[in-house]
Design a protein around this nucleic acid. Structure first.
Lengths: 335, 335
DNA sequence: ACAAGGGTTGTGAACGTGTGCATTTTGTAC
DNA sequence: GTACAAAATGCACACGTTCACAACCCTTGT
């Protein structure tokens, strides 16, 4: 059926061992015979049988990229960037297997022999079952996006706190001193980090934040809309709003639009995430871009080094964010 | 190291063959011993070695999902929906391997033993190299999104023509008779299909279309913007515009906004694709949603049936689109 | 008691590749 | 030419599983 190393061997009157050595450029082979072998292998269109190779080498050549769930990922852009980042560093001899971990009935069937290593884009604490399983079974693992307690594993995270800090400084540099925040879902790591950055930036610049400048949100457009309405009812309405993600920023903009306020002349808005739509809305939305693809690629690089070199010192790596300046932020209006 | 069927066999004083039979629920086994074996297998946390199984069964248990390229996919939403759709029908025993075919130096290294079947989300004619290779090597193949000449292979396509037809009928039902089109990149299959639907709808309703209602576009926001400006300079400007994708629709809306025209009071706009941002802009954009996830899932089902049942009659399957009604379409203004 | 036959289990080879060790060939120095 | 080392090659087994075939046990009918 398909051509094997034995077929190549037979043609050249050598043993299959020699052919094997030629294909793996072993030092134990005459360069000339090696050349001959490689030539006829190519000519015969030889392709190694990965199953056989995997069996004897005890390597699957599969890298698992798992999301908490496949049916409700954070956002399409988030998903795409992650896959793209990881994919860019995985070499041709490896297969990148993408799945949601909720698709596996039992994480314990995830075997070292089925995956040489696992990259987990974690969005929920439920993933900890997989994490501890991998640790126990000594499957090389890198966790992206969500900080995990175990210090022995590699964690790649977006520096959301610093990004939020920069966003708020950006507002301050435009003269704003009345800056409100629309928070995200309570308890989420992202919410905590981003709010922390917000508060620190204000503190560093000696700006106080009254309670009425803090509005609740749930990362949805609707919640941003109602939050903004609430903020506008404040005794001294803010001149700038920092929404913890872009969806809420859009909701806030809708509320401002309805209230007859202009952006950014009357009020500046800045979001977080740089969602795809941010550049399409009017005015285009200033925001903070998380380098998701870079999170994926550095995670993948780390994983490959763990697999190949066996270095498994856990660490936490932070990937810088980028401030995206568009049209929704302007100078603070005179009072 | 890890537990094999021989380990299980040794404990129960049976042969490894018996264990194998138990695990594959073969009829050639006593239900009672089978039960005993399954129990201890579970207890030992036995996981089958896929490499070994693959080797002897000549099956990789890998399904390849290939995009033309990974670095510049049509849109994040498109990518995500595709993967999600395919993933939803792939069972746990299979690995879904995602990649761009440009990552493979030579498509001929794509082997039947490495992939039991391939799903190709095709966006370019360059993919034909892979198609013909798969046909030649008899690798089960399903091509999504792009019509391919070879009638022997399964093709799953979005019914763009019918979707465009419905969109235009939707405008006509709102009383519009002066309807313009912003075209997409010349030569693209999608452009041809959508324009065809547009023209047929007008013809069926005895509406003429003057040349000045046909504007060129390139699927970008900028091109939609300039196209709209051109359309507004017409002797009798249209009351409705059909943009062949959402990006161009947004560009058109920006041009209308600058011209002081209201949407949909003065002019209605409808797009195509239901991009993520369509619901976030103001006014929210009416559009046509392609059921990408369904394209993926039906393609995957077809592939699995080819793999398992060997039925390989080529066919072209069209997946219906869905008209998404939002706020950018209203009744035609009185003249 | 014995043959027939169904049900259940075991034996041994095979899948394609890599590797430790033995063997042969080549090269070098005397 | 011989001795020895180094280089190159071959042999045989291993990896974990499946499968064809043989072997065994037990029931049933004569």
């Amino acid at each position: 059926m398909s051509v094997t190393i034995k077929d190549v061997a037979k043609i050249l009157h050598v043993s299959h061992t020699t052919v094997s050595r030629a294909l793996n450029d072993s030092p134990l082979i005459n360069p000339e015979t090696k050349k001959r072998i490689l030539e006829t292998a190519k000519q015969l269109n030889y392709v190694p049988n990965y199953s056989a190779r995997s069996l004897v080498r005890n390597r699957s050549y599969n890298i698992g990229l798992f999301f908490s769930t496949m049916s409700q990922v954070t956002s399409p852009g988030f998903f795409y960037e992650t896959v793209r980042g990881v994919n860019s560093v995985i070499t041709e001899s490896y297969n990148l297997v993408v799945n949601g971990i909720d698709r596996y009935a039992d994480v314990r069937t995830l075997d070292k022999r089925r995956f040489d290593g696992i990259i987990l884009m974690s969005q929920s604490e439920k993933d900890d079952a997989l994490v501890s399983h991998a640790v126990e079974k000594q499957i090389p693992l890198v966790v992206l996006n969500r900080k995990v307690a175990d210090t022995s594993i590699v964690n790649v995270l977006s520096a959301d706190r610093q990004g939020a800090y920069n966003a708020v400084v950006h507002l301050i540099e435009h003269g704003h001193t009345h800056i409100a925040i629309i928070e995200g879902e309570k308890g989420f790591q992202a919410t905590i980090e981003r709010k922390e950055g917000f508060l620190t930036a204000l503190r560093d610049n000696h700006i106080e934040i009254p309670d009425e400048y803090i509005a609740e949100g749930h990362y949805t457009m609707e919640s941003g809309y109602t939050a903004m309405k609430q903020l506008l009812r404040a005794a001294h309405p803010p001149t700038a709003v920092f929404a913890l993600n872009d969806e809420m920023a859009v909701g806030a903009m809708k509320a401002l639009y309805e209230a007859g306020l202009r952006i950014p002349e009357d009020l500046s808005v800045i979001g977080f995430d740089d969602s795809q739509f941010s550049s399409f809305i009017t005015p285009s939305l200033s925001t903070v871009r998380r380098a998701i693809a870079e999170v994926g690629s550095t995670g993948a690089k780390k994983l490959m080094s763990i697999i190949n070199n066996g270095d498994s010192t856990g660490e936490k790596i932070y990937i810088d964010t980028e401030l995206i300046q568009r049209d929704s932020v302007g100078p603070a209006p005179k009072r």
